[in-house]
Structures are given as C-alpha cells and as structure tokens.
C-alpha cells in the first residue's frame, strides 16, 4: 500500500468512526410492513365506504323529496276562444290541497 492510499484509508476509517454516532432506524420486517400496508388499504377503503353510505342516504332522502314534489296537478280550462291551456301547479301534500273553487265560496260569502 502506498502512502496516499494509507491517508485515504485513514480518512474513511475516521469517517466511519464518526458515523458510529448515527442513529440507525430499526429494521421493519414483513410483519411491520404487513400492518402498515394493511392500514394503508383500510383507511382509503374506510373513507370510500363512508362516502358511499352518506351518498346512498342522500339519495334515499332525495327520493322522498321527489315523491313529495311529484304530486302535480294539471288543470285544463276553456278559454274564450275555445283553446285549452295547461296550468301546472305543485302541491306539497294532500293535506294542504285546496279546491280551485274555494275562492268562489269565500267571495260569495263576502257578497
């Protein structure tokens, strides 16, 4: 070994000695990886599942609203010239339904 090689070997030997103070993280074998990879799959699936549940709940609720909204009354009445015109009104429920002639009763009462 020539002199220059000895100097370099000493340099790296001292570097190795200094690195002995380095904190080496523990080795994670397949067991550690298994639990980590399991949680890696569980978390996104859990989030996706809760989104699906929330979405299906929303859809169900939305469906009920649609049923209420779908109570549509179509009234056809004769115009003077004999043509017909559709008048579409929405009703929330049968409980709040009012006859179209109710106004006439009230008006007659006033007369």
């Amino acid at each position: 070994m020539n002199r220059s090689d000895k100097e370099i070997k000493d340099f790296f030997a001292e570097m190795r000695k200094a690195d002995e103070q380095l904190q080496i993280p523990g080795f994670e074998g397949t067991e550690g990886r298994k639990s980590r990879s399991l949680s890696r799959y569980i978390i996104p699936y859990g989030i996706a599942a809760s989104f699906l549940i929330l979405f299906s709940l929303y859809l169900n609720r939305g469906g009920q609203d649609d049923q209420e909204d779908s109570k549509i009354e179509i009234v056809l009445y004769m115009k003077e010239k004999g043509s017909t015109e559709s008048l579409i009104t929405e009703e929330v429920s049968l409980d709040s339904w009012e006859s179209s002639s109710d106004a006439l009763i009230d008006d007659l009462g006033e007369w």
Binding site: D19, L22, I24, P25, F27, G29, T30
Partner: peptide, 21 residues
C-alpha cells in the same frame, strides 16, 4: 425464500441506511 431475504436485509440494514444517506 422470504425469511432468508429478510435475514439478509436485516444483516445489511445498517450499511444500507448509511449508503442511502
């Protein structure tokens, strides 16, 4: 096999970490 692989990785873990650094 897996256990032999794991054993070798464990054996070289320190050097591997220093080399990665």
């Amino acid at each position: 096999n897996k256990s032999r692989l794991e054993h070798l990785l464990k054996e070289h873990h320190r050097d591997a970490f220093i080399w990665a650094g």
